[in-house]
Design a protein around this nucleic acid. Sequence first.
DNA 1: TTTCACACTTAGCAGCTTATTG
DNA 2: CAATAAGCTGCTAAGTGTGAAA
Length: 497
Amino acid sequence: MLDHEYTTKKVFRENFFNDWRKEMTHEEMSLIKDLDKCNFGDIHAMHKAKVEARKNMTKEEKQVLKEANQKIVDEYGYCLLDHHKERIGNFKIEPPGLFRGRGEHPKQGMLKKRIQPEDVIINCSIESCVPVPPAGHHWKEVRHDNTVTWLASWTENIQGSIKYIMLNANSKLKGEKDWEKYEVARKLKTCVDDIRNQYLQDLKSKEMGTRQRAVALYFIDKLALRAGNEKEEGETADTVGCCSLRVEHITLHEQLEGNECVVEFDFLGKDSIRYYNKVPVIRKVFKNLKLFLENKQPGDDLFDRLTTSLLNKHLSSLMQGLSAKVFRTYNASITLQQQLKELTNKKLLSYNRANRAVAILCNHQRAPPKTFDQSMANLQAKIDGRKEQLALAKTELKQAKKEAKAKGSSEPKLLVERKKAAVKRCEEQLLKMEVQATDREENKQIALGTSKLNYLDPRISVAWCKNTEVPVEKIYNKSQRDKFAWAIDMTEADFEF
DNA sequence: TTTCACACTTAGCAGCTTATTG
DNA sequence: CAATAAGCTGCTAAGTGTGAAA
């Protein structure tokens, strides 16, 4: 932790020191007054040594550890729901530590406290045997609420929010919910044209609130923006979604790079991931935006007459179960389906391309891997090496041909065949590496996992596998197959989202 | 009408394990 | 066999959205 960048941040250090002092005895308090004068070198070295020792354990020692861990999972990692044994998603309580939010979080560095049994609420059925608290302790409460899915909960001390112990994604309960989510998105498909016509009409409304709603919906639909609930200032990092966009987050361009009516977005979204995009919009949207910006300061809300609950109330009146997030699911899944139809090269690479198109739409980014530049250079070196090898193989082939012609006997012909094969092999390997290089470069900052796990109706993927004879194992690993078992079981090749 | 409490999904990252490669 | 890359899992923060209370 000591060598991490955030220990140099002012906010982090102040919050930490503040909370640390609260834990001190009087004596310590009078002794330790300045964080800059504290030296954590020893404890840091000890920690590092521990990590090193772990790494250097023998195979047998590691095996023993693994088995001990498995035992814990066997004992605490499962529960019984409706007479079915189900895996629990997160059965371990979160350990204490220093809170590190994402981005410029005002609470970074604060002490996340240890949770005691006295903080924990247990939720189980009335006829089940209640788990026994650790010796000398008691639970905060034991309740029997079958209208919720959580098994245990506690309140965390940084934000005061509730944390839950819930089932694993491969459980029947979560699977059914997942299925329902995609069914709602499919229902949107049947009425999305009407809804689009509606909001295009609303762009001309006399009501300012209605116009703002229409423009917001246009963004949510076209750009897959998140709804953007309002957040309490100073409690979290300053991030926004659609409804919470501020004047400072967009720039209007009558003309830009050969396009008319371009909106330039630049803001931090969920997890403080930057959203940067230059989008040509229809004239009516552009004109409305100009109107919304009139007489406002950079820090003012773009949509001052709109909230997510107003927007969602409207949406649910248009279709049962419709809310802003459904558009993200719908647009992600429909994009995958379209892309898979367009990319006629029925290979895994096409699937990844389609997946990538969705990830870009949803702005799913990742930090480039730490070793990215190095490994890219390594790959390039390999490509160069292979190119040389290919050139050499080609000249050798020519030479062999020449000799074969001169001698005309069968022996050199055999040599020609062998050289030909070598050239071919070389070319194939080269091509493979080049494809790999492109793929890796294109994927540098893009995270595919999030859309695969949360936005893409798995039935689209399963059907594609059936049609292309790509084994489903190639696109879903074991835990993904478990999560999507419902889709793998029920999907035929002719499935349409 | 606004705020709050609550429950649930969505998100990226660290660190480990496994596969690949030379 | 060792080095490197790829794949995977666990973790927990950060969103969404509903319904009740103020």
